[in-house]
Amino acid sequence: MKEDTLVVHEIYSSIQGESTFAGLPCTFVRLTGCNLRCAWCDTTQAFFGGQRMRRGEVLDRALASGTPLVELTGGEPLLQPGAIPLLRELCDAGRTVLVETSGEADVSRVDPRVHKIMDLKAPGSGESHRNRWSNLAHIGPRDEIKFVLADRADYEWMRGVIRERELTRLGCTLLASAVWGKLAPKDLVAWVLEDGLLVRVQVQLHKIIWGAEAQGV
């Protein structure tokens, strides 16, 4: 069965670099493959390659590190059928489980115990037409919506989406992140304060600690 195996790019332990869980020890299971090609993508190495592993082995390795927090990421992890039962099994094992997903993949089957961290792609990504807006029906207070912004136009797009889609009514955390090397975080902060926008501005903590080119951290 397709659900019995997963193509895995890497499994490693570090600290969480983004989201409301930033700074906490976390084990990352990075799956291979993505069907989007965002202009600013910083994990292109995960598009191809990897090792096919039995789902039970992936689960065992993710749990072996002992971190209470586990994240399934990619690429786009929800492209692989085995991701859905793996997320469920990680929850069953008592872990706090995160999934990082692009906003294009269907999140409706993700276990409700999982914290979904879902992008909404801004125009600067080149992939905003791929946003699956129906996913918003499956986002709740334990989840987070992330906007990665390359410039002022992206910021204004985010501001419009938050207001027009009434995202604050979902009860989830709204994250605003500046594309590394493209948009100065201080500019993003200034715009958020000027507009009184109810978002959490975040930086990529792992890049500050280890540098933008480091992998597996």
Rank of each mutant, 00 (worst) to 15 (best):
G124N: 02
G94M: 04
T168V: 09
L59R: 10
E100M: 06
K121R: 03
H206T: 08
P141F: 06
L174Y: 00
L175K: 00
A22T: 08
L87W: 02
F47E: 04
T73M: 11
R95F: 03
L136Q: 07
E3F: 08
S19Y: 09
C91I: 14
L174C: 00
A122P: 13
L188C: 02
L79D: 08
E127N: 13
A64V: 04
S102C: 13
R109N: 12
W157V: 00
L198C: 11
E100L: 06
R37M: 09
E18Y: 02
C41H: 02
V148Y: 07
E89C: 03
A150Q: 09
A62W: 12
V189S: 14
M158T: 01
N131R: 06
W40I: 00
C38G: 05
V7W: 08
F147V: 00
F48V: 14
G124M: 01
R152L: 14
V189G: 03
V8E: 09
P25L: 09
W133V: 12
F28Q: 08
D60H: 14
E18T: 00
V99G: 09
P141T: 12
D106S: 08
W133N: 10
G66I: 03
E57K: 13
H9W: 11
E76G: 11
R159D: 08
P81C: 01
K146H: 02
L149T: 00
C172L: 02
L59Q: 09
A122W: 01
